[in-house]
Design a binder for these strands. Structure first.
Length: 647
DNA sequence: AGCATCATGAGGCATTTT
DNA sequence: AAAATGCCTCATGATGCT
């Protein structure tokens, strides 16, 4: 069910029941009722000016022209340049605002598997303020449509799919039909003729359940697990049982000792096996046994597909067809995201298994991150010289004051804030109270160590602890000294920009395989560039940067990258773009035409709604900033389409 | 307005104990 | 098994200063 889905939006409109499921599950429905995307949509309507009142007809993004535009990222063959010539040459404001207005709520529903036309219509009729109502509407509409046996909408969708097939035929080639059928049938139909029948019954059950007040996601999961033959009563039983024993998830792991890699591959094999064989029955059994859906789990130790220091077995992996480049892509975010986030990310990014790596295997500080990429994994090599691997090596001056009872050898994750002076003062007082002894009491040791670990404090004097200096953070993360210094950036912003950045040695190790592949250099699209972690990594690897399109919202960060670019005597071109949401297909195509496409797309989208340190708005992938992940996917998919079109 | 400073837990996994 | 404990986390918002 997966490959096509991520491959193009159009695919998601094929079959509601099979495609919609993964996106309707955990969190999405709930998150939709939160405000970020909705408020943005509201803002847009207000700004748009022509939405006088709640009228259905006045919202211009539902006109036919706009629908044409909406379709272009999906059915790319029809037009990557919108059909209306004036749209291409139109003002930047007009085209970009039309693009951004759909990017959140609209794309979320489209991502759930509803056709763009349906979604636009539903949003138009109901309004952005009631996402749940929109969802219900979409489900109801789909069911009614099937019941009434009016294939109009489906005809439209299928035609869209046919277009897609033409475009992506080289990607899917012989595999295409298999995965496509997989997508359509998924759970049941052994022959294409049943496709219409069974989904309808499932949808009917779904509608019944939701009408009875059961949550949509629960109903979906129940149907998925109990199979299409289950009665409504059975489904209700399942939902109740699931609610009563939520801890069933915990059973997921024990016997599957091997790391995530193996789990994941097991899971994936079924998808790539022939479409007929792996029956829903088998799948249902497994899922019933294990409680909830299979989830991506973090490996232990967190060394991904291998790190230079740990002599591990060489890992081979098979990428899903849809994931294979060009271009190469590399996506990064925090490993310890809320449940289900990485499942969603992986699903969008062509079902590529995330590589979870802790940078403590590369340097003196921990940094647990997940990387989704389609790069080769053999013959990687690390940056030289190897960075210091312990605190003592990295910060030799602290050794003199480091007490024996502080057994830390690695720092914890470098974040965006540092410990306060009040805190280090409190610690100093507590230590001085027992200064006569050779060692402070265990209770004090415990207190001090807890604070040291929490705030990454280091010993700079007798009883004196301090947070790291910005240049020390630069060094630990693999950036050149003073990389973020000067040029109008404040100290606070330095910590923030650094805390949000890559660990260069880690990323460079992954990107090192590109050196042989692109001896003449790469064209790089760098989304959410920040302070240029990817650029620095490639440069230090000795991979020439030919053309770099860097998208970064923060002006101080852009200045940092610009400054670095000039100081390192780059021969290529650096093009800065501020807002990732303003980057549309036209602009991309224009850029790519000028230098022949991108070789690599790198990006780490905002983590602040995912990170554990966030007390206020850890809203998950649908959070205000973290939902920009969907723009990474959107742009990556656009580039893929454009690249395949060009060849 | 910009900057620095400070206080503010929960979620989730792993490990240990009961 | 189940409960308790340990441990870690690319942060936000309020406040006061210049």
């Amino acid at each position: 069910m997966r490959p096509l889905l991520a491959g193009a939006f159009a695919a998601s409109s094929v079959s509601l029941s099979s495609v919609c499921v993964p996106f309707a599950k955990k969190g999405l429905v709930n998150h939709l009722s939160k405000d970020p995307c909705i408020s943005q949509a509201r803002e847009y309507i207000v700004m748009d000016g022509n939405a006088a009142g709640e009228g259905d007809d006045n919202v211009d993004w539902n006109t036919e022209d706009e629908l044409e535009v909406e379709n272009y990222p999906a059915s790319s063959s029809s037009s990557l340049t919108p059909p209306s010539g004036d749209a291409a040459s139109g003002s930047a404001e007009a085209s970009s605002s039309a693009g951004t207005s759909h990017s959140k709520l609209f794309y979320q529903f489209v991502g759930m598997g509803f056709s763009e036309k349906l979604v636009a219509k539903a949003i138009d009729e109901i309004g952005e303020g009631q996402p749940d109502a929109i969802l219900e509407h979409l489900l109801t509409y789909k069911v009614l449509q099937v019941l009434e046996n009016s294939p109009q909408e489906q005809d439209i969708d299928e035609s869209a799919v046919v277009k897609e097939e033409v475009v992506d035929s080289d990607h899917f080639s012989s595999d295409y039909e298999g995965s496509f059928l997989d997508d359509l049938s998924d759970e049941d139909s052994y022959s294409g003729s049943e496709e219409v029948i069974n989904p309808s019954s499932e949808d009917k059950k779904l509608l019944s359940l939701t009408a009875m007040g059961y949550p949509v996601e629960g109903a979906y999961i129940a149907i998925e697990r109990c199979g299409p033959d289950a009665s409504v009563d059975e489904l209700i039983d399942f939902i109740c049982a699931a609610q009563m024993s939520k801890e069933a998830d915990a059973l997921l792991g024990p016997e599957e000792k091997p790391r995530l890699l193996n789990d994941f591959r097991k899971q994936k094999k079924r998808k790539h096996s022939n479409c007929d064989a792996w029956s829903k029955k088998r799948r249902g059994e497994k899922k019933l046994l294990h409680g909830d859906e299979e989830q991506i789990r973090l490996p232990n130790p967190m060394i991904g597909f291998g790190v230079p220091t740990e002599s591990s077995t060489i890992v081979h992996r098979t990428l899903p067809e849809a994931a294979i480049g060009p271009p190469y892509f590399y996506y990064e975010n925090v490993a310890l995201a809320p449940k289900g986030v990485w499942d969603t990310i992986s699903r969008f990014l062509y079902d590529v298994e995330p590589e979870f790596v802790d940078s403590k295997y590369f340097c003196a500080t921990a940094r647990k991150r997940g990387y989704v990429h389609n790069l080769p994994t053999n013959n990687r090599f690390p940056l030289l010289p190897l960075p210091p691997r312990t605190i003592h090596e990295a910060l030799p001056l602290t050794r003199k004051w480091w007490p024996s009872w502080d057994t830390r050898t690695k720092l914890n994750c470098l974040q965006t804030c540092i410990g306060s002076a009040k805190l280090t003062e409190r610690i100093r007082k507590a230590l001085e109270d027992n200064d006569g002894e050779s060692e402070p009491p265990l209770r004090i040791q415990k207190y001090v160590l807890d604070e040291c670990r929490k705030w990454n404090l280091v010993w700079v004097g007798r009883n004196k602890l301090a947070p790291l200096e910005p240049d020390e953070v630069e060094m630990l993360l693999g950036f050149p000294k003073n990389h973020t210094r000067g040029g109008g950036i404040s100290r606070t912003d330095r910590y923030k920009s650094l805390g949000n950045s890559f660990q260069v040695d880690t990323v460079a190790y992954h990107l090192s395989v590109l050196k042989d592949l692109f001896p003449a250099g790469v064209n790089l699209l760098s989304l959410f560039s920040g302070i240029g972690g990817a650029e620095v990594a490639l440069h230090r690897l000795g991979i020439p940067l030919k053309n770099v399109v860097s998208v970064e919202i923060s002006e101080v960060n852009r200045n940092i990258v610009r400054s670095w670019w000039e100081q390192t005597n780059q021969k290529g071109n650096l093009i800065h773009i501020a807002d990732v949401q303003q980057l549309n297909g036209d602009r991309l195509e224009q850029l790519m035409n000028s230098f022949g496409g991108f070789d690599l797309i790198v990006g780490g989208s905002p983590c602040n709604n995912l990170a554990g340190s966030n007390r206020h708005s850890r809203d998950g992938l649908e959070g205000k900033e973290s939902s920009l992940f969907y723009d990474y996917f959107r742009i990556l998919d656009l580039v893929k389409c454009i690249m395949s079109k060009g060849h």
